[in-house]
């Protein structure tokens, strides 16, 4: 048994954020809520979603692995209206996931389940020296600046505690500098200077579904994966992206 009702807008955002990196996902559902971890095909990035039970208006579930094609889910959620309620319902007999959208009309979709067995993929527990809390819009703007000069970007914490988004091409260079006085910065928890370099296309995918006022928690170290977390309603989404190393 699995039946869960949530506002369509939040679930759409969760699917949009996930489907930028992976094609299929296995939702591990149980009485506490929905969890899913997946790596992109090249194993450079990982996405982890946690939608606790209290996010839902109604939630009843036993333990199931529900493997779905994210592209199909993304298309259906693309048709959802923000004032609609979405009910997810597992049809074990037909091996389908039903998506029922309700407001003025009742619209029913049903998608085939994939045999994506749970990968038991765990998010590695990495300790980070630095954490930046920044508005998503500001970070996305800095990435756009960096993109003008190269396909990769360095996320740096300077000796004097500034957060720097730096990119260097053959001839050109771009740099966005934030400090504790910047309005877009909610907090800088810094213990040491650090620098890691990342592929820009991945960072853009990771931040694509964000709204400009979303608060990103960016965890940084030197030549370490970047961890980026934000909330979608009560749900939490986490990305890990491996660095590029000189």
């Amino acid at each position: 048994m699995f039946k869960a009702t949530i506002n369509a807008k939040d679930f759409k955002k969760i699917i949009d954020a996930t489907s930028n990196l992976v094609d299929e996902i296995c939702f591990e559902v149980d009485e506490n809520g929905i969890k899913a971890n997946a790596m992109d095909p090249s194993h450079v990035a990982l996405v982890s979603v946690n939608i606790p039970k209290d996010t839902f208006e109604e939630y009843i579930s036993d333990v199931h692995d529900i493997g779905v094609d994210l592209e199909a889910l993304k298309k259906i959620m693309g048709r959802a209206k923000s004032n609609e309620k979405l009910t997810l319902e597992l049809d074990e007999e037909k091996n389908k996931l039903n998506l029922i959208l309700k407001n003025d009309a009742v619209r029913k979709f049903s998608v085939s389940l994939y045999d994506v067995s749970s990968t038991n993929l765990k998010v590695p527990d990495i300790e980070y020296p630095n954490e930046v809390m920044i508005k998503a819009g500001a970070f996305v703007e800095a990435l756009k600046d960096a993109e003008l000069v190269n396909d990769h970007v360095s996320l740096k914490i300077s000796e004097d505690g500034k957060f720097i988004i730096f990119s260097k091409g053959d001839i050109n260079q771009s740099e966005t500098i934030y400090d504790n006085n910047s309005e877009s910065i909610l907090d800088l928890k810094i213990t040491e200077s650090s620098k890691s370099t990342f592929n820009l296309a991945y960072l853009k995918d990771i931040t694509k579904a964000t709204s400009s006022d979303d608060i990103l928690h960016i965890y940084l170290g030197s030549d370490m994966p970047v961890k980026i977390e934000y909330n979608i309603g009560n749900a939490k989404i986490l990305f890990l992206l491996a660095p590029r190393i000189e």
Partner: peptide, 11 residues
Amino acid sequence: KPKQITLEAFF
């Protein structure tokens, strides 16, 4: 040029 590594190195 920096080289992309995979996440496996951190598991």
